[in-house]
Amino acid sequence: MKSHTLSVLVENRAGVLSRVAGMFSRRGFNIESLAVGTCEEPEMSRITIVVNGDDSQVEQVIKQANKLIDVIKVSDLTGRESVERELALIKVAAEAGTSRAEIMQIADIFRAQIVDVGSKTLVLQVAGDTGKIDALEKLLRQYGIKELVRTGKIAILRGAKTVKSAK
């Protein structure tokens, strides 16, 4: 069992997300993360899905996804040279005083930005791979995380290769 990152190119149509997500859960897959948005082609969207499974299970679910009429292409990016990113917004307790400065220092090290400053809280924005965000979250926990929002992972191949429709 390992984590697989799948890039799924789909028609930009109503219901397509529920077709894809429904198929994964119907076939017994837990979706660990999912991100969807428009892409370079105006009539298509790209869904990045992270699932856990052994290679043959994942191969089967990729084939099933390819059978959906609205799915144009599915690529497994796992083990290929790719850039993976998540974005997180973290609201941390920060009473005016010592902790504020410490939090700002940590943000600096992680190249996170402070996007909101309240009288009792700070909101940090951080982008990176899953490990980096996990690490930041862990460090901030001691100050009290009031709320944490993470996007699903998005991923793109390095170099000239792309995940595109055959035509």
């Binding site: 219901g15 529920s18 429904g22 119907r26 959906l68 009429i69």
Partner: peptide, 16 residues
């Protein structure tokens, strides 16, 4: 019905 039959059709349409 398009939601209900999603897992049991090859494809389905809701015409708008």
């Amino acid at each position: 019905i398009t939601g209900i039959t999603m897992p049991i059709t090859k494809h389905n349409y809701l015409v708008k």
